[in-house]
Simulated scan of single mutants.
Amino acid sequence: MQILAATDFSTRSYRALRRAGLLAKACGAELSLVHVVDDDQPPNLVAIETREAERILAEQIGAMAELQSLRCRPMAVAGDPFDGILRTATTVQADLIVMGAHRKQLLRDVFIGTTIERVIRTGPHPVLMVNDEVERPYRTALAAVDLSEPSANAIKTSMTLGLLRTLRLTLVHAFFPLAKGKLSYAGVSKDNIDEYVAGERLRATQELITFLDANGLSDVGQSKHIEEGAPFEVISSTVKRLSPDLLVMGTHGRSGIAKMLLGSVAEEVLRSLDVDILTVPPTR
């Protein structure tokens, strides 16, 4: 197994390197560390910054406890950050990319997206965004399931990577009772509305069970939370309530200009929640 950890030498990236080290030790993986040097400057400056980056990477490998006894490969490449990370991931045949939480840049993010969002949108690799301080190996995980192929693939990929091997996994699924608002507007009694919602919850539960069975995941997840509401609100409230160490979710492939637009549940989650988040792209 190959793990690629990307760093810009910030505190955010320091956490990502530590987490990548813990994961590599747990999974017996090889670990590559990459720093991308901005190539939009004179070649002599690119060369100087590349040598300096290589020096800092070597120092961190020697000094960081989580990287001790691991097979680590430091790499400094020139280019745009997201493109450099993806090129390096291809070179080392990475099974997982680990990155620190993004730094928001206001309007630039709105129109272009952060580096990690661009890596997730355009690359074929699972990406782990590290938000939390690294104190111990992961113990609990929450997987968002929307009855789509990408959500099933996210769980399967997490299992293949070995991330869920020792974790207590909870599944969360959102359902939305479409007729609830109409019933309330029509003056239907609260008891009858509650009965309708309970029926919709039962139907959603059965749909989830059928979906898991169809995807060979019937034994996955120690508990299942079927919650009423929009997907992001349900995921957010469940994360706050359960405080998992890791949130797992699939992303839906988009092409063309749609890749530049915001609004997907995954993007809302990445921008709003402070938990560590593993995003898995659809199978290509």
Rank of each mutant, 00 (worst) to 15 (best):
V130S: 05
V130T: 07
V130A: 01
V130R: 08
N131I: 14
E133H: 06
E133S: 13
E133Q: 12
E133T: 13
E135F: 08
E135W: 14
R136A: 14
R136H: 12
P137E: 10
P137Q: 03
Y138G: 08
Y138E: 06
Y138D: 10
R139F: 11
A141P: 01
A141R: 02
A141G: 03
L142D: 00
L142Q: 00
A143D: 00
A143Q: 02
A143R: 02
A143H: 01
A144N: 00
V145C: 10
V145M: 05
D146A: 09
D146C: 11
D146M: 11
D146L: 05
L147V: 04
S148M: 09
E149T: 04
P150M: 08
P150W: 07
A152C: 01
N153W: 08
N153S: 13
A154K: 01
A154R: 00
I155M: 06
I155L: 07
I155H: 02
I155Q: 02
I155D: 00
K156G: 00
K156T: 05
T157F: 00
T157H: 06
T157Q: 06
T157P: 05
T157C: 10
T157S: 07
S158M: 01
S158D: 02
M159N: 01
M159A: 02
T160I: 12
T160A: 14
L161D: 00
L161G: 05
L161E: 01
L161F: 01
G162F: 05
G162R: 04
L163P: 01
L164H: 12
R165V: 14
T166P: 07
R168N: 03
R168V: 15
R168L: 11
L169G: 03
L169C: 03
L169N: 05
T170K: 09
T170R: 08
L171E: 03
V172E: 02
A174L: 01
A174K: 03
F175P: 03
F175R: 12
F175K: 12
F175I: 13
F176Q: 06
F176R: 13
F176Y: 14
P177C: 10
L178I: 09
L178Y: 07
L178M: 10
A179L: 09
A179N: 12
K180I: 09
G181N: 08
G181S: 08
K182S: 14
S184D: 14
S184M: 15
S184R: 15
Y185H: 14
Y185F: 10
G187R: 00
G187P: 01
V188D: 05
S189V: 11
S189E: 02
K190L: 10
D191H: 05
D191M: 06
D191K: 14
D191Q: 08
N192L: 15
N192F: 14
I193F: 00
D194S: 13
D194T: 09
D194M: 06
E195S: 03
Y196L: 09
V197H: 02
V197N: 09
A198W: 11
A198D: 04
R201Q: 15
R201D: 15
R201V: 11
L202W: 13
L202E: 11
L202F: 09
L202V: 13
R203G: 15
A204Y: 09
A204G: 05
T205I: 14
T205N: 09
T205E: 04
T205C: 14
Q206E: 12
Q206I: 09
Q206A: 08
Q206F: 06
E207Y: 04
E207P: 10
E207T: 14
L208W: 04
